[in-house]
Design a binder for these strands. Structure first.
Length: 325
DNA sequence: AGATAGTCCTGTGGGC
DNA sequence: TGCCCACAGGACTATC
């Protein structure tokens, strides 16, 4: 389950191994990985596939960008740049095109030699040319097909790069972004009428956090996943955000050190597999902080893991005679 | 409009 | 042994 740190590792790998290269050809092995491409354009499947291939072919890959779990590669269409001019003042005028990538549950991006055998769940192959280097392939592999690729127009944004793909404008800044505002996070949280974990998983509120790191961050902050967002204090909000950043940075450090030449891997190398998790998947084992048995409850069709003592629930807490020692 | 079910997918593992 | 089904979950869509 790639979350922000894993996607960032992939972004760095693409930056190192694919940036500046030109897409010579595109092979779509499974059109389901293009489900989101040209949505609303009323194209049938062959036409969608064709428009994807056409938009990519002979484009140069610029510096890859990321917001939350969304990854995109701006495309250099300098040959047709004239059409992108004008439109002063309009805040949503497209400023270019991008290849938008989401890894979903099981997506991987690999840079391979053309001769390397096809991976089992290989979905899309981009042939990358280079003037002074050997040809390479950028391969998108995805077992469960929750992820995918699409071409999306770039529109102006607060993102450090100045724009985001139109298909990702609704995604909130992530906690590692320079412009991320803690006060906005707190106020948005207070306005919501929901539980903490649901808010953390809402990519329109704060992006980049998935089920695993949500549980870990809540544990670090000693907050229950069902705790109401409306009663959160400024201090608790800060604690939560600090927990989120701690978890994301630790995973990033673990993943960032383990990727190496020619191989950009999401699943195997990075993050949570190489570092120890405190509560996620640890049900029945002692809480590393207090020794109480970690519990698992089903919530939003997924597991929620927490320490019942360190993270007292809303209801039990109210019934308790006194504080939490 | 904000909150929440339902939907897409396939490999794994438990139960019988 | 083998089959079947529940389960895992990110994010979009539809519905209240």
């Amino acid at each position: 389950m790639p979350e922000l740190p894993e996607v960032e590792v992939v972004r760095r790998g693409i930056s190192r191994w694919a940036m500046g290269r030109t897409v010579e050809s595109v092979t779509v092995h499974d059109p389901r990985s293009l489900r989101r491409h040209a949505l609303g354009a009323a194209l049938d499947e062959p036409a969608r596939l064709g428009s994807f291939t056409t938009a990519l072919t002979q484009q140069r890959l610029l510096a890859p960008q990321r917001r939350g779990k969304f990854l995109w590669i701006p495309l250099d269409r300098s040959t047709t740049a004239a059409t992108a001019a004008a439109q002063p003042g309009s805040g949503t005028a497209p400023v270019g095109e991008s290849l938008l990538i989401h890894l979903g549950m099981s997506g991987q991006v690999l840079i391979d030699e053309p001769s390397a055998p096809a991976q089992k769940h290989l979905k899309i192959t981009l042939e990358l040319g280079g003037e002074d280097s050997a040809p390479k392939q950028l391969r998108f592999i995805d077992q469960r097909i929750f992820g995918g690729m699409q071409i999306s127009e770039l529109v102006p944004s607060t993102h450090p790069s100045g724009s985001v793909p139109a298909a990702a404008v609704h995604i909130a800044p992530d906690p590692l972004e320079p412009g991320f505002d803690e006060e906005t996070f707190f106020r948005t949280l207070r306005r919501r009428k929901t539980g903490l974990k649901r808010a953390l998983l809402d990519q329109g509120m704060v992006s980049g956090i998935g089920n695993i790191y949500a549980d870990e961050a809540l544990w670090l902050a000693r907050l229950h996943y069902l705790r109401s967002t409306q009663t959160i204090t400024r201090a608790e909000s800060a604690r939560l955000l600090s927990g989120v950043k701690t978890v994301l940075l630790a995973a990033l450090e673990a993943g960032g050190t383990s990727f190496d030449a020619l191989y950009v891997n999401v699943n195997g190398a990075s993050g949570y597999f190489s570092r120890s998790l405190n509560v996620y998947g640890q049900q029945g084992r002692p809480c590393p902080r207090c020794g109480t048995e970690v519990r698992r409850e089903t919530f939003m069709n997924r597991g929620s893991h927490f320490c019942p003592k360190c993270q007292p629930g809303p209801r039990p807490a109210r019934l308790r005679a006194s504080g939490r020692a």
